[in-house]
Design a protein around this nucleic acid. Structure first.
Lengths: 244, 244
DNA sequence: CCAACTTGTTCAGATATGTGAACCGTGTGC
DNA sequence: GCACACGGTTCACATATCTGAACAAGTTGG
Protein backbone atom coordinates (compact mmCIF):
# COMPACT_ATOMS: atom_id res chain seq x y z
CA UNK A 1 0.00 0.00 0.00
CA UNK A 2 1.12 3.47 -0.90
CA UNK A 3 3.97 1.98 -2.86
CA UNK A 4 4.85 5.16 -4.65
CA UNK A 5 5.06 7.21 -1.46
CA UNK A 6 7.33 4.65 0.15
CA UNK A 7 9.42 4.59 -3.00
CA UNK A 8 9.69 8.35 -3.00
CA UNK A 9 10.95 8.23 0.58
CA UNK A 10 13.45 5.52 -0.26
CA UNK A 11 14.73 7.68 -3.10
CA UNK A 12 15.19 10.60 -0.72
CA UNK A 13 17.02 8.38 1.75
CA UNK A 14 19.22 6.96 -0.96
CA UNK A 15 20.21 10.37 -2.28
CA UNK A 16 20.77 11.72 1.19
CA UNK A 17 23.28 8.96 1.84
CA UNK A 18 24.91 9.10 -1.58
CA UNK A 19 28.29 10.77 -1.89
CA UNK A 20 27.27 12.59 -5.05
CA UNK A 21 24.20 13.26 -7.21
CA UNK A 22 22.82 10.23 -9.06
CA UNK A 23 21.24 9.56 -12.44
CA UNK A 24 17.72 8.30 -12.92
CA UNK A 25 19.00 4.94 -14.10
CA UNK A 26 21.33 4.38 -11.17
CA UNK A 27 18.58 5.28 -8.71
CA UNK A 28 16.19 2.88 -10.42
CA UNK A 29 18.74 0.08 -10.36
CA UNK A 30 19.81 0.64 -6.79
CA UNK A 31 16.25 0.49 -5.49
CA UNK A 32 14.94 -2.06 -8.02
CA UNK A 33 12.24 0.28 -9.25
CA UNK A 34 11.36 0.25 -12.96
CA UNK A 35 12.85 3.19 -14.80
CA UNK A 36 9.54 4.54 -15.99
CA UNK A 37 8.09 4.56 -12.50
CA UNK A 38 11.24 6.12 -11.12
CA UNK A 39 10.91 8.75 -13.79
CA UNK A 40 7.48 9.89 -12.69
CA UNK A 41 8.35 9.85 -9.01
CA UNK A 42 11.48 11.88 -9.62
CA UNK A 43 9.51 14.38 -11.66
CA UNK A 44 7.09 14.81 -8.79
CA UNK A 45 9.90 15.25 -6.26
CA UNK A 46 11.71 17.76 -8.43
CA UNK A 47 8.49 19.62 -9.10
CA UNK A 48 7.99 20.10 -5.39
CA UNK A 49 11.61 21.08 -4.77
CA UNK A 50 12.47 18.05 -2.67
CA UNK A 51 15.01 17.07 -5.25
CA UNK A 52 17.16 19.28 -7.42
CA UNK A 53 19.28 18.80 -10.51
CA UNK A 54 22.97 19.59 -10.44
CA UNK A 55 24.92 21.02 -13.37
CA UNK A 56 25.02 17.63 -15.06
CA UNK A 57 21.31 16.98 -14.66
CA UNK A 58 21.86 14.49 -11.88
CA UNK A 59 19.51 14.26 -8.94
CA UNK A 60 20.36 15.48 -5.43
CA UNK A 61 18.41 16.34 -2.30
CA UNK A 62 16.77 19.71 -2.80
CA UNK A 63 16.17 22.90 -0.90
CA UNK A 64 12.63 22.07 0.15
CA UNK A 65 13.81 18.92 1.86
CA UNK A 66 16.26 21.01 3.84
CA UNK A 67 13.52 23.44 4.76
CA UNK A 68 11.18 20.72 5.95
CA UNK A 69 13.92 18.95 7.85
CA UNK A 70 14.94 22.14 9.60
CA UNK A 71 11.42 22.45 10.98
CA UNK A 72 11.94 19.23 12.88
CA UNK A 73 14.61 20.94 14.96
CA UNK A 74 12.37 23.92 15.66
CA UNK A 75 9.63 21.62 16.94
CA UNK A 76 12.07 19.74 19.18
CA UNK A 77 12.09 22.14 22.09
CA UNK A 78 14.85 20.15 23.75
CA UNK A 79 17.25 21.68 21.28
CA UNK A 80 16.67 25.20 22.54
CA UNK A 81 17.59 24.07 26.02
CA UNK A 82 20.56 22.00 24.96
CA UNK A 83 22.27 24.51 22.66
CA UNK A 84 23.22 26.97 25.40
CA UNK A 85 24.80 24.07 27.29
CA UNK A 86 26.77 23.04 24.20
CA UNK A 87 27.93 26.60 23.72
CA UNK A 88 29.13 26.81 27.31
CA UNK A 89 30.82 23.43 27.13
CA UNK A 90 32.65 24.24 23.92
CA UNK A 91 33.69 27.62 25.28
CA UNK A 92 35.03 26.16 28.54
CA UNK A 93 36.85 23.19 27.05
CA UNK A 94 37.67 24.52 23.59
CA UNK A 95 36.43 21.38 21.86
CA UNK A 96 33.48 20.32 19.70
CA UNK A 97 30.29 19.26 21.50
CA UNK A 98 27.22 17.43 20.22
CA UNK A 99 23.67 16.59 21.07
CA UNK A 100 22.31 13.27 19.82
CA UNK A 101 19.24 11.08 20.28
CA UNK A 102 18.48 7.44 19.65
CA UNK A 103 16.58 6.10 16.68
CA UNK A 104 16.33 2.33 16.60
CA UNK A 105 19.85 0.95 16.64
CA UNK A 106 21.43 4.27 15.75
CA UNK A 107 22.35 7.57 17.30
CA UNK A 108 21.47 10.65 15.24
CA UNK A 109 23.28 13.94 15.77
CA UNK A 110 20.84 16.83 16.08
CA UNK A 111 23.19 19.74 16.66
CA UNK A 112 26.76 20.61 17.41
CA UNK A 113 28.93 23.47 18.49
CA UNK A 114 32.42 23.97 17.13
CA UNK A 115 35.15 25.90 18.93
CA UNK A 116 36.19 29.20 17.35
CA UNK A 117 39.41 29.30 15.43
CA UNK A 118 38.90 25.87 13.98
CA UNK A 119 39.83 26.97 10.47
CA UNK A 120 37.73 25.02 8.03
CA UNK A 121 35.19 22.97 9.93
CA UNK A 122 34.97 19.29 9.33
CA UNK A 123 32.15 18.11 7.16
CA UNK A 124 29.21 18.95 9.36
CA UNK A 125 28.10 15.97 11.41
CA UNK A 126 24.64 17.43 11.97
CA UNK A 127 22.11 14.92 10.71
CA UNK A 128 24.64 12.11 10.75
CA UNK A 129 23.54 8.63 11.81
CA UNK A 130 25.91 6.18 13.48
CA UNK A 131 25.39 2.82 15.17
CA UNK A 132 24.54 3.71 18.76
CA UNK A 133 26.82 1.11 20.30
CA UNK A 134 29.92 2.50 18.61
CA UNK A 135 29.61 6.04 19.95
CA UNK A 136 29.82 7.61 23.38
CA UNK A 137 26.63 9.61 22.81
CA UNK A 138 24.78 6.48 21.72
CA UNK A 139 25.89 4.47 24.71
CA UNK A 140 25.02 7.24 27.15
CA UNK A 141 21.49 7.47 25.73
CA UNK A 142 21.11 3.67 25.85
CA UNK A 143 22.38 3.40 29.40
CA UNK A 144 19.65 5.56 30.89
CA UNK A 145 16.80 4.11 28.87
CA UNK A 146 13.81 2.68 30.75
CA UNK A 147 13.88 -1.12 30.79
CA UNK A 148 11.08 -1.58 28.26
CA UNK A 149 12.53 0.88 25.75
CA UNK A 150 15.98 -0.61 26.10
CA UNK A 151 14.72 -4.02 25.02
CA UNK A 152 13.24 -2.51 21.89
CA UNK A 153 16.48 -0.75 20.97
CA UNK A 154 18.57 -3.82 21.74
CA UNK A 155 16.38 -5.84 19.43
CA UNK A 156 17.06 -3.31 16.70
CA UNK A 157 20.78 -3.52 17.42
CA UNK A 158 20.69 -7.30 17.38
CA UNK A 159 19.04 -7.15 13.99
CA UNK A 160 21.70 -4.73 12.73
CA UNK A 161 24.87 -6.42 13.99
CA UNK A 162 25.67 -9.98 13.17
CA UNK A 163 27.83 -10.67 16.19
CA UNK A 164 25.88 -11.86 19.17
CA UNK A 165 28.95 -11.19 21.31
CA UNK A 166 28.98 -7.47 20.51
CA UNK A 167 25.55 -6.99 21.98
CA UNK A 168 26.33 -8.98 25.11
CA UNK A 169 29.44 -6.91 25.72
CA UNK A 170 27.40 -3.74 25.17
CA UNK A 171 24.80 -4.77 27.75
CA UNK A 172 27.55 -5.32 30.29
CA UNK A 173 29.09 -1.96 29.45
CA UNK A 174 25.83 -0.10 30.02
CA UNK A 175 25.80 -1.06 33.72
CA UNK A 176 29.26 0.38 34.17
CA UNK A 177 28.25 3.56 32.37
CA UNK A 178 25.28 4.08 34.69
CA UNK A 179 27.54 3.60 37.71
CA UNK A 180 30.10 6.11 36.44
CA UNK A 181 27.56 8.67 35.23
CA UNK A 182 29.10 9.00 31.76
CA UNK A 183 30.12 6.98 28.72
CA UNK A 184 33.33 7.20 26.75
CA UNK A 185 34.88 5.98 23.55
CA UNK A 186 38.62 5.84 22.97
CA UNK A 187 39.34 5.82 19.30
CA UNK A 188 36.78 3.12 18.56
CA UNK A 189 35.03 5.38 16.07
CA UNK A 190 37.94 7.49 14.86
CA UNK A 191 41.64 6.87 15.47
CA UNK A 192 43.07 8.94 18.32
CA UNK A 193 39.80 10.70 19.07
CA UNK A 194 38.34 10.37 22.54
CA UNK A 195 34.64 10.99 23.16
CA UNK A 196 32.81 11.50 26.43
CA UNK A 197 29.04 11.72 26.80
CA UNK A 198 26.37 12.04 29.48
CA UNK A 199 22.58 11.70 29.35
CA UNK A 200 20.07 14.52 28.96
CA UNK A 201 16.97 13.25 30.72
CA UNK A 202 13.35 14.25 30.26
CA UNK A 203 10.40 14.11 32.61
CA UNK A 204 8.94 11.58 30.19
CA UNK A 205 10.34 9.86 27.17
CA UNK A 206 13.77 8.47 26.35
CA UNK A 207 16.94 10.44 27.10
CA UNK A 208 19.20 12.13 24.58
CA UNK A 209 22.83 12.83 25.25
CA UNK A 210 25.46 15.52 25.18
CA UNK A 211 28.96 14.55 24.13
CA UNK A 212 32.35 16.01 23.23
CA UNK A 213 35.19 14.83 21.00
CA UNK A 214 38.85 15.69 21.39
CA UNK A 215 42.25 14.40 20.41
CA UNK A 216 43.94 12.10 22.88
CA UNK A 217 47.09 13.60 24.22
CA UNK A 218 45.72 17.11 24.11
CA UNK A 219 46.39 19.32 27.08
CA UNK A 220 42.94 18.61 28.50
CA UNK A 221 42.65 16.55 31.66
CA UNK A 222 40.18 13.71 31.19
CA UNK A 223 38.58 14.45 34.55
CA UNK A 224 38.04 18.07 33.59
CA UNK A 225 36.27 17.00 30.41
CA UNK A 226 34.11 14.47 32.23
CA UNK A 227 33.06 17.00 34.85
CA UNK A 228 32.14 19.52 32.19
CA UNK A 229 30.09 17.09 30.14
CA UNK A 230 28.28 15.62 33.13
CA UNK A 231 27.48 19.08 34.46
CA UNK A 232 26.21 20.36 31.10
CA UNK A 233 23.98 17.31 30.65
CA UNK A 234 22.62 17.58 34.18
CA UNK A 235 21.87 21.28 33.76
CA UNK A 236 20.00 20.62 30.52
CA UNK A 237 18.01 17.89 32.25
CA UNK A 238 17.10 20.25 35.06
CA UNK A 239 15.94 22.99 32.74
CA UNK A 240 13.83 20.40 30.92
CA UNK A 241 12.08 19.61 34.18
CA UNK A 242 13.71 16.32 35.07
CA UNK A 243 13.90 15.53 38.80
CA UNK A 244 15.86 12.58 40.09
CA UNK B 1 0.55 11.86 -12.45
CA UNK B 2 2.16 10.65 -9.29
CA UNK B 3 -0.62 12.21 -7.29
CA UNK B 4 0.20 10.40 -4.11
CA UNK B 5 3.84 11.44 -4.14
CA UNK B 6 2.90 15.06 -4.68
CA UNK B 7 0.35 14.75 -1.91
CA UNK B 8 2.93 13.28 0.43
CA UNK B 9 5.19 16.24 -0.26
CA UNK B 10 2.39 18.68 0.31
CA UNK B 11 1.71 17.02 3.65
CA UNK B 12 5.36 17.40 4.62
CA UNK B 13 5.31 21.05 3.61
CA UNK B 14 2.12 21.68 5.51
CA UNK B 15 3.42 20.10 8.69
CA UNK B 16 6.74 21.86 8.38
CA UNK B 17 4.95 25.19 8.33
CA UNK B 18 2.41 24.32 11.01
CA UNK B 19 2.89 25.74 14.48
CA UNK B 20 2.04 22.46 16.13
CA UNK B 21 1.40 18.80 15.25
CA UNK B 22 -1.82 18.12 13.32
CA UNK B 23 -4.46 15.43 13.26
CA UNK B 24 -5.22 13.27 10.26
CA UNK B 25 -8.55 14.99 9.73
CA UNK B 26 -7.17 18.52 9.83
CA UNK B 27 -4.44 17.59 7.37
CA UNK B 28 -6.98 16.03 5.04
CA UNK B 29 -9.24 19.07 5.22
CA UNK B 30 -6.46 21.60 4.81
CA UNK B 31 -5.17 19.93 1.66
CA UNK B 32 -8.54 18.72 0.34
CA UNK B 33 -7.44 15.11 0.28
CA UNK B 34 -9.97 12.42 1.18
CA UNK B 35 -9.44 11.11 4.69
CA UNK B 36 -8.90 7.53 3.61
CA UNK B 37 -6.19 8.48 1.14
CA UNK B 38 -4.58 10.77 3.68
CA UNK B 39 -4.61 7.86 6.06
CA UNK B 40 -2.57 5.58 3.85
CA UNK B 41 -0.10 8.28 2.86
CA UNK B 42 0.46 9.23 6.49
CA UNK B 43 1.02 5.60 7.39
CA UNK B 44 3.68 5.32 4.71
CA UNK B 45 5.39 8.53 5.86
CA UNK B 46 5.36 7.45 9.50
CA UNK B 47 6.62 4.01 8.56
CA UNK B 48 9.64 5.56 6.91
CA UNK B 49 10.29 7.98 9.77
CA UNK B 50 9.54 11.12 7.75
CA UNK B 51 6.68 11.85 10.09
CA UNK B 52 6.39 11.10 13.78
CA UNK B 53 3.58 11.03 16.29
CA UNK B 54 3.68 13.26 19.32
CA UNK B 55 2.32 12.32 22.74
CA UNK B 56 -1.25 12.92 21.60
CA UNK B 57 -0.91 10.88 18.42
CA UNK B 58 -0.73 13.96 16.24
CA UNK B 59 1.51 14.12 13.21
CA UNK B 60 4.72 16.15 13.03
CA UNK B 61 7.80 16.21 10.82
CA UNK B 62 10.03 13.29 11.80
CA UNK B 63 13.67 12.58 12.37
CA UNK B 64 14.31 11.07 8.96
CA UNK B 65 13.16 14.25 7.27
CA UNK B 66 15.68 16.16 9.35
CA UNK B 67 18.39 13.72 8.40
CA UNK B 68 17.64 13.94 4.70
CA UNK B 69 17.39 17.71 4.81
CA UNK B 70 20.71 18.02 6.59
CA UNK B 71 22.37 16.21 3.72
CA UNK B 72 21.39 19.07 1.43
CA UNK B 73 23.71 21.36 3.39
CA UNK B 74 26.56 18.87 3.24
CA UNK B 75 26.23 18.72 -0.54
CA UNK B 76 26.18 22.50 -0.86
CA UNK B 77 29.90 23.13 -0.74
CA UNK B 78 29.31 26.87 -0.64
CA UNK B 79 28.31 26.48 2.98
CA UNK B 80 31.73 25.26 4.04
CA UNK B 81 33.27 28.36 2.54
CA UNK B 82 30.66 30.74 3.89
CA UNK B 83 30.56 29.56 7.51
CA UNK B 84 34.07 30.69 8.40
CA UNK B 85 33.16 34.13 7.05
CA UNK B 86 29.99 34.22 9.15
CA UNK B 87 31.98 33.21 12.21
CA UNK B 88 34.49 36.00 11.63
CA UNK B 89 31.77 38.53 10.97
CA UNK B 90 29.82 37.65 14.09
CA UNK B 91 32.99 37.68 16.18
CA UNK B 92 34.09 41.11 14.88
CA UNK B 93 30.70 42.81 15.09
CA UNK B 94 29.08 40.85 17.90
CA UNK B 95 25.83 40.36 15.97
CA UNK B 96 24.00 37.54 14.23
CA UNK B 97 24.96 36.78 10.63
CA UNK B 98 23.21 34.70 7.98
CA UNK B 99 23.72 33.06 4.65
CA UNK B 100 20.72 32.85 2.34
CA UNK B 101 19.93 31.90 -1.24
CA UNK B 102 17.06 32.61 -3.61
CA UNK B 103 14.30 30.16 -4.42
CA UNK B 104 11.67 31.58 -6.73
CA UNK B 105 10.23 34.68 -5.07
CA UNK B 106 11.71 33.82 -1.68
CA UNK B 107 14.96 33.92 0.19
CA UNK B 108 15.79 30.81 2.22
CA UNK B 109 18.19 30.95 5.13
CA UNK B 110 20.75 28.16 4.94
CA UNK B 111 22.88 28.86 7.99
CA UNK B 112 23.53 31.40 10.67
CA UNK B 113 25.99 32.29 13.37
CA UNK B 114 24.89 33.75 16.68
CA UNK B 115 27.11 35.86 18.91
CA UNK B 116 28.17 34.25 22.20
CA UNK B 117 26.41 35.36 25.35
CA UNK B 118 23.07 35.65 23.62
CA UNK B 119 21.21 33.85 26.40
CA UNK B 120 18.46 31.81 24.84
CA UNK B 121 18.74 32.02 21.10
CA UNK B 122 15.80 33.16 19.08
CA UNK B 123 13.80 30.47 17.38
CA UNK B 124 16.36 29.27 14.90
CA UNK B 125 15.89 30.95 11.54
CA UNK B 126 17.77 28.22 9.70
CA UNK B 127 15.49 26.81 7.04
CA UNK B 128 13.21 29.84 7.19
CA UNK B 129 11.68 31.17 3.97
CA UNK B 130 10.82 34.85 3.52
CA UNK B 131 9.73 36.91 0.50
CA UNK B 132 13.00 37.95 -1.12
CA UNK B 133 11.98 41.56 -1.71
CA UNK B 134 11.33 42.18 2.00
CA UNK B 135 14.77 41.18 3.24
CA UNK B 136 18.24 42.58 2.82
CA UNK B 137 19.68 39.17 1.98
CA UNK B 138 16.98 38.58 -0.63
CA UNK B 139 17.54 41.94 -2.30
CA UNK B 140 21.31 41.50 -2.36
CA UNK B 141 20.95 38.14 -4.09
CA UNK B 142 18.44 39.58 -6.58
CA UNK B 143 20.58 42.61 -7.38
CA UNK B 144 23.52 40.59 -8.69
CA UNK B 145 21.47 38.08 -10.64
CA UNK B 146 22.23 37.67 -14.36
CA UNK B 147 19.61 39.41 -16.50
CA UNK B 148 17.90 36.21 -17.62
CA UNK B 149 17.62 34.73 -14.14
CA UNK B 150 16.36 38.01 -12.72
CA UNK B 151 13.40 37.98 -15.11
CA UNK B 152 12.45 34.51 -13.92
CA UNK B 153 12.57 35.51 -10.26
CA UNK B 154 10.70 38.74 -10.89
CA UNK B 155 7.95 36.75 -12.58
CA UNK B 156 7.69 34.60 -9.48
CA UNK B 157 7.55 37.71 -7.31
CA UNK B 158 4.90 39.27 -9.54
CA UNK B 159 2.85 36.11 -9.14
CA UNK B 160 3.27 36.22 -5.37
CA UNK B 161 2.54 39.91 -4.65
CA UNK B 162 -0.62 41.54 -5.80
CA UNK B 163 0.73 45.08 -5.99
CA UNK B 164 2.28 45.91 -9.28
CA UNK B 165 3.82 48.97 -7.66
CA UNK B 166 5.84 46.94 -5.17
CA UNK B 167 7.69 45.14 -7.93
CA UNK B 168 8.40 48.32 -9.86
CA UNK B 169 9.84 49.93 -6.76
CA UNK B 170 11.94 46.83 -6.15
CA UNK B 171 13.39 46.93 -9.66
CA UNK B 172 14.41 50.52 -9.11
CA UNK B 173 15.95 49.67 -5.77
CA UNK B 174 18.11 46.91 -7.24
CA UNK B 175 20.06 49.37 -9.38
CA UNK B 176 20.90 51.44 -6.33
CA UNK B 177 21.98 48.33 -4.44
CA UNK B 178 24.37 47.33 -7.21
CA UNK B 179 25.87 50.83 -7.21
CA UNK B 180 26.36 50.82 -3.43
CA UNK B 181 27.64 47.26 -3.23
CA UNK B 182 25.22 46.21 -0.48
CA UNK B 183 21.53 46.09 0.38
CA UNK B 184 19.84 47.14 3.59
CA UNK B 185 16.52 46.93 5.34
CA UNK B 186 15.49 49.29 8.12
CA UNK B 187 12.78 47.71 10.18
CA UNK B 188 10.76 46.67 7.16
CA UNK B 189 10.82 43.05 8.28
CA UNK B 190 11.04 43.49 12.06
CA UNK B 191 10.53 46.68 14.03
CA UNK B 192 13.76 48.40 15.00
CA UNK B 193 15.97 45.77 13.40
CA UNK B 194 18.40 46.84 10.73
CA UNK B 195 19.76 44.36 8.22
CA UNK B 196 22.68 44.72 5.83
CA UNK B 197 23.62 42.19 3.18
CA UNK B 198 26.09 41.69 0.33
CA UNK B 199 26.29 39.11 -2.45
CA UNK B 200 28.33 35.91 -2.44
CA UNK B 201 29.10 35.28 -6.08
CA UNK B 202 29.97 32.06 -7.85
CA UNK B 203 31.96 31.40 -11.00
CA UNK B 204 28.71 30.10 -12.43
CA UNK B 205 25.17 30.09 -11.14
CA UNK B 206 23.15 32.65 -9.19
CA UNK B 207 24.61 34.43 -6.17
CA UNK B 208 23.71 33.85 -2.53
CA UNK B 209 24.16 36.49 0.11
CA UNK B 210 25.62 37.11 3.55
CA UNK B 211 23.73 39.39 5.88
CA UNK B 212 23.63 40.62 9.47
CA UNK B 213 20.85 41.85 11.74
CA UNK B 214 21.22 44.28 14.61
CA UNK B 215 19.17 46.67 16.66
CA UNK B 216 19.05 50.25 15.47
CA UNK B 217 20.61 52.58 17.95
CA UNK B 218 23.17 50.04 19.08
CA UNK B 219 26.72 51.24 19.55
CA UNK B 220 27.70 49.90 16.12
CA UNK B 221 28.55 52.37 13.38
CA UNK B 222 26.57 51.61 10.23
CA UNK B 223 29.65 52.08 8.08
CA UNK B 224 31.59 49.59 10.19
CA UNK B 225 28.85 46.99 9.70
CA UNK B 226 28.66 47.62 5.96
CA UNK B 227 32.42 47.28 5.55
CA UNK B 228 32.41 44.02 7.49
CA UNK B 229 29.56 42.47 5.54
CA UNK B 230 30.90 43.53 2.15
CA UNK B 231 34.36 42.25 3.01
CA UNK B 232 33.05 38.90 4.28
CA UNK B 233 30.92 38.39 1.19
CA UNK B 234 33.78 39.32 -1.12
CA UNK B 235 36.16 36.94 0.63
CA UNK B 236 33.68 34.10 0.35
CA UNK B 237 33.27 34.86 -3.36
CA UNK B 238 37.03 34.80 -3.86
CA UNK B 239 37.46 31.48 -2.11
CA UNK B 240 34.68 30.10 -4.29
CA UNK B 241 36.66 31.07 -7.34
CA UNK B 242 34.76 34.12 -8.50
CA UNK B 243 36.82 36.72 -10.37
CA UNK B 244 35.45 40.12 -11.26
C1' DC C 1 -26.20 8.82 31.30
C1' DC C 2 -27.28 9.46 26.74
C1' DA C 3 -26.66 11.89 22.46
C1' DA C 4 -24.08 14.28 19.33
C1' DC C 5 -19.73 15.05 17.71
C1' DT C 6 -15.21 14.11 17.25
C1' DT C 7 -11.17 11.13 15.03
C1' DG C 8 -9.43 7.22 12.85
C1' DT C 9 -10.22 2.90 10.33
C1' DT C 10 -12.10 -0.37 6.95
C1' DC C 11 -14.07 -1.97 2.58
C1' DA C 12 -15.55 -2.92 -2.45
C1' DG C 13 -15.92 -0.59 -6.72
C1' DA C 14 -14.26 3.32 -9.88
C1' DT C 15 -10.26 5.10 -11.43
C1' DA C 16 -5.66 6.43 -12.02
C1' DT C 17 -1.02 4.59 -11.61
C1' DG C 18 2.65 1.19 -12.48
C1' DT C 19 4.80 -1.66 -15.82
C1' DG C 20 8.06 -3.12 -19.60
C1' DA C 21 9.24 -2.56 -24.03
C1' DA C 22 10.22 0.30 -27.53
C1' DC C 23 11.93 4.95 -28.78
C1' DC C 24 14.90 9.10 -28.92
C1' DG C 25 18.85 11.84 -28.10
C1' DT C 26 23.77 12.16 -26.78
C1' DG C 27 28.31 11.11 -26.30
C1' DT C 28 32.11 7.75 -26.57
C1' DG C 29 35.28 4.59 -28.61
C1' DC C 30 36.85 2.32 -32.52
C1' DG D 1 31.95 8.34 -39.45
C1' DC D 2 29.75 4.53 -37.57
C1' DA D 3 28.12 1.64 -34.11
C1' DC D 4 27.40 1.05 -29.56
C1' DA D 5 26.34 2.14 -24.92
C1' DC D 6 23.93 5.00 -21.84
C1' DG D 7 20.51 8.11 -19.97
C1' DG D 8 15.98 9.71 -20.44
C1' DT D 9 11.21 9.68 -22.32
C1' DT D 10 6.86 7.91 -24.03
C1' DC D 11 2.96 4.67 -24.62
C1' DA D 12 -1.04 1.12 -24.10
C1' DC D 13 -2.42 -2.37 -20.98
C1' DA D 14 -2.54 -4.83 -16.46
C1' DT D 15 -2.90 -3.75 -11.96
C1' DA D 16 -2.84 -1.45 -7.64
C1' DT D 17 -4.42 2.86 -5.63
C1' DC D 18 -7.97 6.25 -4.57
C1' DT D 19 -12.50 7.18 -3.30
C1' DG D 20 -16.70 7.92 -0.38
C1' DA D 21 -19.59 6.04 2.62
C1' DA D 22 -20.27 3.39 6.40
C1' DC D 23 -18.23 1.73 10.79
C1' DA D 24 -15.76 1.69 15.29
C1' DA D 25 -13.97 4.04 19.22
C1' DG D 26 -13.40 7.76 22.06
C1' DT D 27 -14.73 12.54 23.79
C1' DT D 28 -17.56 16.36 24.95
C1' DG D 29 -21.62 18.52 26.59
C1' DG D 30 -26.12 18.75 28.20
Amino acid sequence: MSTSVVRAMRILELLSGAAKPMTLTSIAEELSIPKSTTHSILKALVGRGFLGLDEYQNYAVGLKAFEVGASHLRSTNAVEVVIPQLVGLTRDLGITSHYAILDGSDAVYLCKEDPPGLGLKLASSVGARLPAYTTAVGKAALAWLPEADLERHLDAIRAAVSQRQTVDRLIGELGGIRALGFSSDDGETAQGVRCVAAPVRYPSGPPGSIGVSYLRGSSLQDQQVIDGVVRAARRASEVLGYRD
